[in-house]
Amino acid sequence: MDPLTSLILFGVGALILVVFFLPEKGLYYRWKRALQSTERVLIEDALKHLYDCEYRQVNCTLQSIAGNLDIGSDKAAELVERLESLRLITTENGNLHLTKSGRSYALRVIRVHRIWEKYLADETSVPETDWHSQAEIMEHELTPAQADELAAKIGNPVVDPHGDPIPSVDGDLPGREGVILTNLKENDFAVITHIEDEPKTVYAQIVALGLSPGMQIRILENSPTRIVFEADGDEKVLAPVIASNITVKKIFTPEEIREEFKTLSVLKPGEKAEVIKISNALRGQQRRRLMDLGVVPGAEIKAELENPFGDLTAYRVKDTVIALRKNQTDHIYIKKVEKTNNE
């Protein structure tokens, strides 16, 4: 075979491999996803949607199911019929309601979904924007027993990484608390308690701003066109339609208001500080490791040395020198301590 032909054949082969196995978009992955869309998945997704309506106290209809599950209205009607025959839902004047067993089924699915999100957040490095979509798949695959086992392994969490409560084994779930960010007035203080993870594009924008549950907020401006606020000391601007995906808890007592928002990354070699808080953005193993090393609120920390490129800094904590990367020190809040003179 002459070299040109074999090179061309090689190129074609490589191209085919890419088309098939390109992550997410490859034919192989599409085919796998298509296989997952079975009847059970439709039933569970519909129940989840109905539960969500109940939780938000709005009415659910056949059309809203069709829209939420992205299926035609014929198929949705078929699905509702099937759900009724399984005694999971009842229909009243065109509004759909969960039966008792339907509700407990929905809660089981939601429990698996949120446990899996918590697992991804704490034990893996899967990016934040992928948690929801991966949990959407796993919620149909794990059995309740497997989910309980996983929950036990990660310390029986009570809230998922978006701040949503995880239903207990018995299907208990606390009522919705807090207010929507858009309802706050200027100079109100609050703490983020929940960030809605759907739709994905909206969630990605919130993540890109670096917002996460646990951050303290102070409203600077709230107008119909935009909301300006400080989140842990940084100014952020959101359109109201996006801000309405964030739930917060208002702070009323002045003692709870935090004023220092300097991060460890601003500390220059030779300067000392006291750690105030590790942001929720550092979670799971990362967080535990830092705490093991003694980086905990109240600890004294001193910047010692920067590496030649200035993106890695060594700090002395409890008489040990450890180097941390900037993407970690950006999430550790400090209070500067005045310089000592004996150096």
């Binding site: 991804l120 893996t124 490095s125 490791r289 020198v321 450890i322």
Partner: peptide, 13 residues
């Protein structure tokens, strides 16, 4: 991509 990741580097005396 999804494997857990942390960072710290001790500089011993």
């Amino acid at each position: 991509k999804g494997e857990a990741s942390t960072f710290n580097l001790e500089l011993p005396p």
